[in-house]
Amino acid sequence: MAGPAVAQTSPRAGARAFAPGAWVLALAVLAVLVAPLVVSPYYLTKMLPFFAYGVVLLGLNLLVGYTGLLSFGHALFLGVGAYTVSVATTRLEIRSFEVILLLAALTAAIVAAPIGALCVRYVKIYFGMLTLAFGMLFYSFLIKFYAVTGGDQGLRVAQHSLLGLFEARSGERVRFLTGQFYYYAAAVLAILALVMWRIVRSPFGLCLRSIRDNPEKAEYLGVSVRRHRWYAFMLSAVYAGIGGALLGPVTGQVDPTLVYWTHSGNLVFMVLLGGFTSFFGPLLGAFVFIFLQDQIMSVVPYWRLVFGAILAAIVIFAPTGLMGLLSQRPTLPRWAVLRQAPGPEHAN
C-alpha cells in the first residue's frame, strides 16, 4: 500500500511505485475478505466504523490533500448522512439501503451546494473557520429542534434491507452486522475508493492539484479556481454523506455529537495520521485511529491524552503521517510548508 502518492507524476513512475504497493493492497483486501471467518465478532464490529470512516476520509482528503483546503466542519456532512438513514428508516418507511445511500448522497450534495459556494470563496484559516461555523450551526439545529431531530438524544436507526435480500431479524443484529452488512460496507468502500482513484487521476484531479499548488497561476491557465473548489467540496460532502449513512446502522442511533466540532477535528486527525499526501493514507489513518482507540480504552479511559500526544508527534515529527514514514518520504510538500500571510485571501 506504500504510496501512489498525491503528486504521482506519470504512468511510468506510477507503475514503479505501485508494484510493492499493489501487493500490500491485495493482501489488505484479502484480509478484509477472510476476516469474518477467523476474527472474533468484536473486532468485526470495529471494522464497520472503519469502512464508514474510510469513505468519509477519502472524500475529506480530496479537499485537504488534493485541493489544499482544510475543513474543520466536515462532520456536518457525515451527520447529514447518518440522520438521513435514521429519518428514512423511522419516518419515511424506506427499507432499501441502496435507496437510503442514494438519498444520503443527494441530501449531502444539496446541503453542500450553497455552503460550498460560500466557503470556497475563502482559503486557509478563513475556510476552516467558515466550515467550522456551518458545522456548529447544524449542531445547534440538531440540539434545539427536538421535534425533528430528537434533540441531544438523537434518533434511532430502524430496520433496513440490503439489496432487498438481507435484513436483520430481531435478536440477530450482531450476526447481521458482522455478516452481510460487513461485506456490504466493505464493498461500498471498495467501489467508492475505485471511483475516487479515478477522480484524482482525471483531468479534474489534475486541475485540483494545480489549484492547491498555485491558484493564481491556475487561473491564468484558464482553470476556474472557485468552480473546481466547489465541485471538490460537493464531492467530498457526498462521500461524507455516504460514509455517515454507513455509520448509522452500526451505532443504531444517531446523535448530535456526530457533528460536533471535535468530531470534525478527529476526522482531520485521521487524515493526517495516515498521511494526506497519499491516496491510501486516510484509510490507514482511520484503521489505526479506530483500533488504537479501542486498545487504549480497554486499558485506560484516557485515550484523548494518548491521542493528543500522538497527534502532536505526527504534526511535529512526521507531518506526512504513517504513509510518509512507510514510504520514507517524510518531507512535506511545498504548499504545506510555505507560510502565507494571514488574511482573507479571496480565491481570485
Binding site: 474543520f72 482531520v268 507531518p319 504545506a336
Partner: peptide, 13 residues
Amino acid sequence: DRDEAFQLLLTFA
C-alpha cells in the same frame, strides 16, 4: 514556519 493548518492541529492536540 509551517502552514497554519499544522499549527491549528497542534493546538487541537
